[in-house]
Amino acid sequence: MTPPSSSSPPEPGAGAPDRRALIAFAWLWVLIPLGYGLYELVRKATQLFTG
């Protein structure tokens, strides 16, 4: 199995850019709509116990 690596290794002498903002933006892009879907799901699922 290939050894785990969290990112491509930077080339010698080249400073790897900080991508934390991009990572946060990308995850928010997908998690916000997913959160909306889950919220609606929970609202509906509670009907099993209250309906």
Partner: peptide, 17 residues
């Protein structure tokens, strides 16, 4: 160089969602 692998799951999620 330095590309984070944690950018790949949101890329995949944007398609699958």
């Amino acid at each position: 160089p330095g590309w984070s692998r944690w950018l790949v799951p949101p890329a995949a999620l944007s398609v699958h969602l």
